[in-house]
Design a protein around this nucleic acid. Structure first.
Lengths: 236, 236
DNA sequence: ACCTGAACACCGTTCAAGT
DNA sequence: ACCTGAACACCGTTCAAGT
C-alpha cells in the first residue's frame, strides 16, 4: 500500500541546514535530553549514520541548534535608549528567543556556545558594556556572567511555559489529574521549602513563599542586580 | 581459581550510603555523564537492578551525591567577620567542596538540589543576607543567583583542575602530544576568540586576551559584583 | 523481605560496503 | 563522492523469579 506521491513532501536531500533545523524543532517539542541522533535521523527519514557526514557528534549538533535558536534576535538600535536600556533589551530578547525553543538553553550551561549568532550577540554585549564605561577586564567577565544569566533564565521560563502548556492541553479532559501532577512538579520546590522544619531552618521557613515565586520580575530583577553590581566596580 | 578470601574486602551489604558514596567517587574520577547506573552497580559488585531498591532513578542518585559533596562544608562563625565576609567565605567553601568532586556541580544546573546539606547552606545564606539588611524578596532571589554562581564557578574550576591534572599525569611520557591536546581543549575558547574577524567583531577581537583568563580572581570578582548589586537594591 | 537475571527498548558512533 | 546497513559496545528501567 504505497503512499500517494504527495502524501508527504519529497524526501529532500540531506543538508546541514535541514538537520539543524529539525534538531531544534525536536528539542522544542520533546526536550534536549530526549533528542537523540537516531530520533533526528528518523524525522529526516534516514539512518543515524547519515548525520555524521555533516556533523562531528551530538554535542556539535546541539551547539548548532542553540545558535540557530538565537539567529533571529535583532540588536537594539539608537532609538532604544542608552547603553543600559539597550543591553537589558538585548539580553531579554535572547532569553525570549531561547525560551521559545524548549530547553535548548541547556546547551549554554554545558558548553560555551561560539556559533556565528552567539558571537554577534556577544560582540554587541561587550560593545554596550564598554559604552557604559566598564573596565575592559570587567567587560569580559561581565559577558560571562550575563551568558550564565541568559541560559538559566531561559531554562526557568521554558520550564514554566511547558508546565502551563501541559496544564492547558489537558484542561477539561479526563487526564486532569495528570495535568495537576505536572503543575505540582513545577511546585515541587515550593512544597519542599514550605515543609521544612521551622526550628532547623527558620529563615527558609519564613521566606518559603518568596523562594519560588517572582516570574518575570525575578529575571529582570537579577539582571538589574548584575548591572548595578558592575557599575559599583566602575569607580575604584 | 577462586580468589583468596581476603583478596578484596568482603562484599559488604548494599546500603544507600555506600551507593551514594560510590557514585560520588566515580563522578570525581570519570565525570558526571560517564557514571551510569550500571557502572555504579559494577563498582559495588552487583547488578543495576539492585540500585533501584534504594533509589528512584539516576537523577535522584545524582542529587544525593551532590548533597554528599557539600556535607563537610563548615559554616563560618562570628570570628570570620561581618555578614558579607562570612557570606563570601561560605560561598567559597561550597565552590571548593564541589569542585574537588569532578563535575558533580552539573547536578545543580540541571536540578535545584534540596538535600539536607544543601538546605543547611541555603538557610545560612538567607540568614546572612537578612543580616545584611536585604529585603526578604531580594534575599530569596539572591539565594537563587548565588546558587547559580556556585554551580557554574565550581564547574569552571573543576574543568581547570582536570586539564591540569591530565597535563601532569602525562608529563614526560610519550603521551605528551595527547596531554597538549587536552590543554588545548581548555584553550579552545581562547582560540575561537582570538581568531575572530577584527572587522566583524572588533570588541571581541580587542578583548580576546581577557575573555578566557582570570582564574580564581574571576570567580571572586563575580561574587563581589553580585553582592554589590544586591546592596544597590537596598535603598530604593 | 530483600535481591537480581534477564529482558525491553533504547543509546552514540564507526566502518565496510553499497550506489 | 556521497550515503547507509549492520554492528559494537553501551544505556535506564522493569519485573518475574529466586533466596
Amino acid at each position: 500500500m504505497p503512499a500517494t506521491p504527495r502524501a508527504r513532501p519529497e524526501k529532500s536531500t540531506l543538508s546541514l541546514e535541514a538537520i539543524v533545523a529539525t534538531t531544534l524543532d525536536l528539542v522544542s517539542e520533546v526536550g534536549y535530553e530526549a533528542v537523540s541522533m537516531r530520533r533526528v535521523a528518523k524525522a529526516l527519514e534516514t539512518g543515524p549514520a547519515s548525520l555524521y557526514v555533516y556533523v562531528q557528534d551530538r554535542r556539535e549538533l546541539m551547539a548548532l541548534a542553540h545558535d540557530l535558536a538565537i539567529a533571529r534576535v535583532v540588536l537594539p538600535d539608537d532609538s532604544d535608549g542608552d547603553w543600559r536600556e539597550r543591553l537589558e533589551l538585548l539580553v531579554d530578547r535572547v532569553v525570549v528567543a531561547l525560551s521559545r525553543r524548549g530547553d535548548i538553553a541547556s546547551v549554554g550551561l554545558v558548553d560555551v556556545p561560539t556559533g556565528p549568532h552567539t558571537l554577534r550577540v556577544t560582540e554587541e554585549v561587550l560593545r554596550l558594556l564598554r559604552l557604559g564605561g566598564i573596565d575592559d577586564a570587567a567587560c569580559a567577565w561581565a559577558a560571562d556572567l550575563l551568558a550564565q544569566y541568559i541560559s538559566s533564565s531561559a531554562l526557568e521560563i521554558a520550564a514554566r511555559l511547558r508546565a502551563q502548556r501541559e496544564l492547558e492541553r489537558s484542561a477539561g479532559s479526563e487526564r486532569a489529574t495528570e495535568a495537576a501532577m505536572t503543575a505540582a512538579f513545577s511546585a515541587r520546590l515550593d512544597t519542599v521549602y514550605r515543609s521544612v522544619s521551622p526550628e532547623e531552618h527558620p529563615t527558609i521557613h519564613a521566606l518559603a513563599p518568596l523562594l519560588t515565586g517572582g516570574g518575570g520580575d525575578r529575571a529582570s530583577w537579577k539582571l538589574r542586580v548584575i548591572i548595578d553590581g558592575l557599575l559599583a566596580q566602575r569607580s575604584p
